[in-house]
Design a protein around this nucleic acid. Structure first.
Length: 496
DNA sequence: AACTATCTGCGACATGTAGGCT
DNA sequence: AGCCTACATGTCGCAGATAGTT
């Protein structure tokens, strides 16, 4: 309930404050007859393009997911069991990034919790992102703690309830008739035992306990109250990759030992083949139901964008071809909706910066470039020093008009660069690998070619803009003071 | 805090290889 | 036909870092 309330209110609040702000600005400008333009005046006067940019961000969970009805209904059909107090089948959800897996799952679980509250069926959904919480210990600890927290709240409520009951019973013992208690003393006793339990509910520390104790703690916490617990494990493949399938094995066989409650697992995975590494028993129990999220095609992406842009942008802020173009670009890249939204948002931001009234096709194309450039800058910036040196060597060669650079040349320049800045010199073996890595990152293009009598080498060329890359590399403090590499590149030319 | 397992980056050494040259 | 170049690619074992466990 809280979550959805917040979702409903936050954007509205944003809108209101934004509008108020506009009004104030207008007032100020009106009063000040002499409009000496300050730094921000121009920027503010332009028609804002965005109505609410939040809905374009990846963190936003929409209330409607176009083209995912089938999957959502599927999940709902499986999970209604929880509302009848039965154990829902475990679900495994597959799909690449940006296919709406997480959003759909979260949406369904919100609905589930909402309905469970309406009918007062005890049913909880716990969401865990295994990329963040990536060990068995941490998953268990986190689960244990949330359930312990819930139990505390449950006990507190129950104690309040019973205390007031006891109070009333003292005056008028007949109120006990409809309850499980036959005397005031029994109620008081129950309160005491609850308070004792309350004492024992200790948080699991984030480190320090043996795993089996954490597991036991979690087990007890879940079983303390009658309920159906749905555990959502996002990026479950990461968990399996890093710490094996023990966690899943334990979780999936819990049901047979729980007395009061039932657990059900929803696994969300990017990787279709991750079950290959699982214990067959885990595999069969976890994959009772499988739901696949296929990538969106261009038309579906357009629907999604249309849907979101209604709230995201002011009316008529988009020129006609913007959405189809964004959709087409994103469809080329594996139908990733996140990417499409990112593109649209960036295009809008660019338009805003231009103080344009509408977002045009050109903005989208520029956004595409910008996103790609940002990616490259980020990749290059975070490269280890040795890789940077190798890249710098390639860059230097490229700048001097050498094309089809080969490994030997790169290695020579690289050695000089290392000398210059006093860095360790790696062997050619290693540098070869580093070049391959740069190739895989897409900042360099390397093809192996055979030059017959003159051996076999990689032909390397830069596949990113020279100036920008150079700027990023030179921003590195260790590379900053490399000066004048031209002479020895030149020397190499003369030799040839 | 101490212990252990796993991962990472590296060099040594070995083997593979396309195709122009002789 | 086979040689030979300038590397590519593969495997191993090591040391130090990092993470998980107790």
């Amino acid at each position: 309930m809280n979550d959805s309330d917040m979702d409903d209110n936050t954007p509205a609040d944003d809108r209101r404050t934004a509008r108020d702000f506009d009004v104030e600005i207008d007032d100020v400008l009106d009063e000040d007859g002499d409009d000496e333009d300050g730094l921000f005046d121009d920027l503010l006067r332009g028609e804002p393009i965005f109505e609410n940019k939040e809905v374009l961000r990846p963190s936003y969970t929409p209330h409607e997911l176009p083209h995912r009805n089938e999957q959502i209904n599927n999940m709902a059909t499986i999970l209604v069991a929880a509302l009848r107090g039965e154990t829902p089948s475990n679900i495994l959800i597959y799909g690449k990034t940006g296919t709406g897996k997480t959003a759909s799952a979260k949406f369904v679980s919100q609905e589930l919790e909402k309905t469970s509250r309406k009918y007062e069926v005890p049913c909880e959904v716990e969401y865990i992102n295994c990329e963040v919480t990536d060990t068995q210990y941490r998953v268990l600890a986190q689960l244990a703690n949330t359930f312990i927290q819930q139990n505390r709240e449950f006990v507190d409520d129950r104690v309040d309830e019973l205390e007031s009951l006891a109070e009333r019973a003292r005056d008028d013992p007949t109120v006990l008739a409809d309850t499980e208690f036959d005397s005031v003393e029994a109620v008081v006793e129950r309160v005491d035992s609850l308070l004792d339990d309350r004492e024992e509910m200790e948080d699991v520390p984030m480190t320090g306990w043996p795993t089996d104790r954490v597991y036991a703690e979690f087990f007890d916490a879940v079983d303390y109250v009658e309920r159906v617990a749905v555990i959502m494990l996002d990026e479950i493949d990461k968990l399996v990759e890093k710490s094996g399938d023990d966690t899943l094995y334990n979780l999936s066989r819990m049901n047979s030992e729980l007395d009061n409650s039932r657990v059900s697992i929803i696994g969300i995975s990017n990787d279709l083949k991750f079950t290959d590494f699982l214990d067959p028993r885990v595999k069969s129990s976890l994959g009772e139901e499988e739901i696949v999220f296929p990538p969106y095609d261009a038309n579906q992406l357009r629907d999604i964008l249309e849907h979101r842009s209604e709230t995201a942008f002011k009316a008529d802020a988009l020129s006609e071809d913007v959405l189809p173009l964004c959709a087409a670009f994103a469809a080329q890249e594996h139908g990733d909706a996140r990417r499409a939204l990112d593109l649209l948002r960036t295009a809008g931001e660019l338009a805003e910066r231009d103080q344009a009234d509408i977002v045009t096709e050109a903005h989208v194309r520029r956004a595409q470039d910008k996103i790609e450039l940002d990616r490259v800058v980020e990749v290059v910036r975070t490269l280890p020093t040795q890789s940077k040196l190798v890249l710098y060597a390639i860059l230097v060669l490229e700048k001097h008009g050498v094309h089809n650079i080969n490994t030997g040349e790169v290695y020579n320049i690289y050695k000089r660069l290392c000398d210059e800045i006093d860095a360790d010199v790696l062997t050619q073996r290693r540098v070869t690998d580093l070049i391959s890595e740069l190739d895989m990152l897409g900042i360099v293009n390397a093809v192996v070619v055979s030059k017959g009598r003159y051996g076999r080498t990689k032909e390397i060329s830069l596949s990113v803009p020279v100036e920008e890359t150079e700027a990023v590399l030179e921003a590195d403090s260790r590379l900053g003071d490399v000066e004048n590499v031209t002479p020895f590149v030149q020397a190499r030319f003369d030799n040839e």
